[in-house]
Design a protein around this nucleic acid. Sequence first.
RNA 1: GGAGAGAUGGCCGAGUGGUCGAAGGCGCACGCCUGGAAAGUGUGUAUACCUCACAAGGGUAUCGAGGGUUCGAAUCCCUCUCUCUCCGCCA
Length: 423
Amino acid sequence: MLEISFVRNEAAQVVSRLKIKNFDASMLVEQIIAVDVRRRNIQKSLDETLAQSNQLAREIGTLYKQGKQSEADLLKTRTSELKNLSKSLQDDMDACSLEQEKLLVLLPNLPHEGVPAGKSSTDNEVMLSEGKIPQLSENALPHWELAKKYDLIDFECGSKISGAGFPVYKGKGARLQRALIAFFLDEAVAAGYTEYQPPLLVNEASAYATGQLPDKDGQMYHATVDNLYLIPTAEVPITNIFRDMILRSDELPAKCTAYSACFRREAGSYGKDVRGLNRLHQFDKVEIVQVVQPHNSYIVLEEMAMHVTGLIRKLELPFRMLKLCGGDMSFASALTYDMEVYSAAQERWLEVSSVSNFATFQSNRMKLRVRTPDGKLTLAHTLNGSALALPRIVAALLENHQEKDGIRIPKALQPYTGFDFIG
RNA sequence: GGAGAGAUGGCCGAGUGGUCGAAGGCGCACGCCUGGAAAGUGUGUAUACCUCACAAGGGUAUCGAGGGUUCGAAUCCCUCUCUCUCCGCCA
């Protein structure tokens, strides 16, 4: 959520910068400012009215103490009018604030200056492209066939137990999952992140703070009896650790990492994109999150992106790094890098990580602030990224490293799997 | 799930209707003291919004959240949330 003071003072800038995201904000900004003017006028009258009744109450108190009953009673007659007035003003004020908030959350985050214009994923900028795309033999298999052949993943069994999109990992397949999680966590800890184990179900306030609510309501599983949401990413509980906090500047950067299962309804997805591990309702992911001071958040974004590319490199997978164009960026992001690995048998790029700087967009919603050394309060910047999402990594690992009679495990992973070959 | 106790500022902790945004202590910041430090000592130390130059000054709100009683509530009443203790259940 953008700050109201910013929208008020920089309305033109808000509108022009959101054009990069193909978002026409002119009407919305106009409405917001109109409500803001109304709100401030109401507050002015409300404050005046309350000041009067406070003053009156003080006088009445003094008169009682002096034993001047009748004079006090006389003053009392004046209070009911003020009370009615302040009550109705308060109602107006509440309605106005609510409306303003409702409108304000409809505004996407402003894209960073470096974000290229564009409509869709085809307009993303390739920043980096690395690794050799393997030349597979004629009878190379896609990962879902490999998973079956080597008895690593049972999709049908998962369907029986839960439904499509809930695979059952088995034997070396299950061990590979555990190995990847441990590997990613160890790498993050080595890079200075503190490991967390967050709750997998969160309340409404948390889902709202990171922006899943209200806009992505239908994408989360909702346990309605207890009004809890299954997390779509560990970003939600981890970032919410810092909700309603004022941090000292020496407590930053706060670097957190967490493994979690992630749950996504993926409403509306279908077709070959969802085949095998490409898109699931439940999957595993290690997330990295940073809370930083505003001045260096973009440097930190680069650093986080490098951490992610380092992981992919160690897994010996061909990848590319994209800077997302305005049209392909998420609502809350100011700048996003996507990492894609090449899945050789499917002959397509798969997104395995998305690293974003949200600047103050999340911190404003969740009132996350830093006190700078000179005593001033300012909103912190939040960033996060997948490091990494497992399923597509597994897909690429199986497909790219397949050989005639099995699958080779990259060296970096071998200490974690305990085997170097799946055959 | 049943019974009880509680929730006050960064922390501890006073405060049962009146000028309380809140005593006192700790912590923190700055100053004095000191050769330097400790001790001592003085001052300051919540947040949001409005007014306004994001200054000073002023106003309003906030003592878990929401509602109510009252001229006036941290203090009384109601609802909810959370924490703790005991019992039950349980990986």
